[in-house]
């Protein structure tokens, strides 16, 4: 898989506060990535760094396998926090400035305005737009150069339900054209509905990184190890209880994701019958979804 973005050991400190703490993840072409975390978890800072507006304390990142330059930014479309435009300029003039910066063709302006449903308002001043329209204009602006990657930070924040649906449909429509999307959100529901992959952040640290469908596995998973993890993995896969077994964590523990209910005692018995003695066996009943809700609940309370 072609890597669009690779982030390596990124750290950003604001005074004594660490906003992003040794963050590493990569983004593969053609997927929709969610950057999920409560407010203040470092999502916007991370996006700010990879978009050249925030200077990292340490760490590096690569766009399209190259060191980042302003030219790589021209292959990216991004909106951060809120739609930022010149309020006194019309939609068309605003997009003209963006096109001049990105070096995009002028005729793209009408095309993108049409895509986001604002063509008939192109001569109206930005300040007369509703929030939903402003957000759509921002998406249109981000798409002007037909970017390979679209970055959206809380794109549905503050929108009414109709506006939210419009934006989500638009995102899926853009993704279906093959654009890689990175979507930052504090809404689990939004990430589940839109994204294929997710990176969960808490206080600047990665809590989970992987596929969304794994995250929401309903039966929990086992953390497990024995003297011979290779053999253990084979045996686990031969059992009918598991969806997948992975050793991704790098801590010597296998992660066996359940597809049906099974308790630790029963698993231990079965493995012992197969001649495997376990060193470590923990069942994580709590799914990541619940963990995430716990985090956000603590935040809000």
């Amino acid at each position: 898989m072609e890597k669009v973005l690779e982030i390596g050991h990124l750290t950003k400190k604001f005074g004594r506060m660490t906003a992003v703490d040794d963050l590493s993840f990569s983004v593969e072409k053609g997927n929709i990535y969610g950057l999920l975390g409560p407010n203040g978890s470092g999502k916007s800072t991370t996006l700010g760094i990879i978009l050249n507006v925030v200077n990292p304390t340490i760490g590096s990142w690569k766009w399209f396998g190259e060191e980042p330059t302003t030219n790589s930014l021209k292959k990216i479309g991004a909106i951060i926090e809120r739609p930022n435009f010149y309020p006194y300029l019309s939609a068309e003039k605003n997009l003209e400035i963006v096109a001049q910066i990105k070096g995009a063709e002028k005729h793209k302006i009408d095309e993108k305005l049409k895509l986001v449903g604002l063509l008939d308002r192109k001569h109206d001043k930005f300040r007369t737009f509703s929030l939903g329209m402003k957000q759509r204009l921002a998406i249109g602006a981000a798409l002007l150069n037909d970017p390979e990657v679209l970055i959206l930070d809380e794109p549905t924040n503050g929108l009414d339900p109709q506006g939210i649906i419009q934006i989500r449909e638009l995102i899926l429509q853009i993704a279906s054209m093959g654009t890689t999307i990175i979507l930052a959100s504090h809404l689990l529901d939004e990430v589940e509905k839109v994204c294929s992959h997710v990176v969960i952040l808490e206080k600047g640290k990665t809590l989970y990184s992987g596929r969304v469908d794994e995250m929401t596995a309903g039966f929990g998973y086992f953390e497990i190890s024995s003297g011979d993890n290779h053999r253990l993995q084979e045996v686990l896969l031969s059992l009918p209880h598991f969806d997948r077994v992975s050793s991704e964590n790098g801590n010597g523990l296998l992660k066996a994701i359940l597809k049906e209910d099974l308790n630790g005692e029963a698993l231990n018995k079965q493995l012992f019958e197969q001649g495997i003695v376990l060193k470590h066996l923990v069942k994580r009943k709590e799914s990541l979804e619940q963990q995430f809700l716990q985090i956000t609940k603590n935040q809000n309370g």
Binding site: V53, N71, I76, N84, Y86, P87, I101
Partner: peptide
């Protein structure tokens, strides 16, 4: 200062202006 208050400085940089 308008570029700060409108957030357009940030957006200009994100759009690829150095």
């Amino acid at each position: 200062t308008n570029e700060f208050s409108n957030g357009t400085l940030k957006q200009n940089l994100i759009d690829g202006l150095s």
